[in-house]
Design a protein around this nucleic acid. Structure first.
Length: 336
DNA sequence: AACTAGTGCAACCGCGAAAGC
DNA sequence: CGCTTTCGCGGTTGCACTAGT
């Protein structure tokens, strides 16, 4: 193995002899003779044998001692993500998936911290699973996977389209999108959602779980409403209906629900334009979920773990206007 | 059967923090 | 105290596999 010899010679000749001609900082794996790419079973065995004999650590010197033409970093990664004996393989269970979503809503992309709460799972595995599965599903459910925010813009858009397209007498008016006083959500659908909320709460009680343990209920409601809306749309006939630019609708709708930046520390969400039944639905949901004395935004509230105590910070002001004043996540310090 | 797009996952990369000297 | 080295994390890439056309 001439490449390995070269590595050893270079390694011993000077403290830093292995930097190549590339600009900037050279990767440890750019060194001549250091193998990259997939690990062979022989390499795996060498690494396992060495660590079983000498334990892990000293990753920089480990490859040399173990007879591997790899950089220490690569060895550590291979061990922690694949060869470690306590690694759990196979599909994530429902409970693990729930835990990942809950933890992510609080910790964000702190994969190592999330992994620490899931024995046998690696940060890399969780990260990959999040990106390939959970993230996509949340998006389908109408949840922003970054903020865990139920996407009210989608909810509103569907209602708007439904009411506008299914009611031939109504004229589509963009001014309504931009802050008009009329309600935008279809009250009949919201009543159905409220009914569904009620029935879900009953069924969850049967299973000994409160609503606060079903953090994505609201999003689920949205999803069901979207499906309902699309069904209604499909049964509508639209003679002479003007073409509607969906992107424009989205833009306008999203703009309307842009949270007001009252200050750097507090997030204020106004539901001024929403149907009172929806405001009540949100209040009902939020009242069941706590802030635990710490700073959470509304969406975090919706996904706050059940261990938190009950203490809603929502208040009604000016009739239908519902305001939330909840510290944003910048103020949260979690001790896991 | 061949090609393409989508998906899942192992591995790499670059950066910052911690540790050592 | 400052410099260097090591370690660990989060983001990204690349490849193998699969499903669809």
């Amino acid at each position: 193995m001439p490449a390995v010899h070269l590595l050893f010679l270079c390694d011993s000749s000077s403290p830093r002899p292995l930097l190549l001609f590339s600009m900037g900082r050279a990767s440890c794996c750019d060194k001549v003779g250091v193998k990259k790419g997939p690990w062979t079973p022989e390499e795996d065995q060498k690494l396992i044998d060495y660590i079983q004999k000498h334990g892990q650590g000293s990753w920089r010197t480990l490859p040399k001692k173990a007879g591997l033409a790899r950089c220490g970093k690569s060895c550590r990664l291979r061990w922690t993500n694949y060869l470690r004996p306590d690694i759990k393989r196979g599909r994530f269970s429902f409970e693990e998936e729930e835990a990942i979503i809950q933890l992510h809503s609080v910790l964000g992309n702190k994969w190592s911290k999330i992994a620490a709460c899931l024995p046998g799972r690696t940060d890399n595995e969780i990260k990959n699973y999040w990106k390939t599965c959970i993230r996509k599903r949340l998006l389908r459910m109408g949840i922003d996977p970054v903020t865990h925010t139920p996407r009210l813009d989608l909810l509103d858009l569907s209602s708007l389209l439904t009411s506008s397209l299914c009611n031939p007498a109504s004229q589509f008016d963009f001014s309504r999108l931009l802050g008009g006083p009329e309600t935008l959500a279809d009250s009949q659908q919201l009543k159905m959602a409220a009914d569904l909320l009620s029935s879900q709460r009953q069924s969850s009680n049967i299973h000994g779980e409160g609503l606060q343990e079903q953090p994505y209920l609201l999003a689920s409601l949205q999803e069901q409403q979207l499906q309902l809306s699309s069904q209604q749309l499909s049964t509508c006939t639209l003679p002479n209906e003007p073409f509607i630019d969906e992107a424009l609708l989205m833009q306008a709708s999203a703009a309307q629900f842009q949270p007001a930046a009252d200050s750097n520390r507090w997030t204020s969400v106004s539901y001024q334009s929403l149907d009172p039944s929806f405001a009540q639905l949100v209040t009902e949901t939020s009242n069941l979920i706590s802030t635990d004395g710490q700073g959470y935004n509304l969406t975090s509230l919706l996904s706050t773990p059940a261990s938190s105590s009950l203490n809603s910070s929502s208040t009604y002001t000016n009739g239908n206007q519902l305001k939330y004043q909840i510290p944003d996540l910048l103020g949260v310090s979690m001790c896991m």
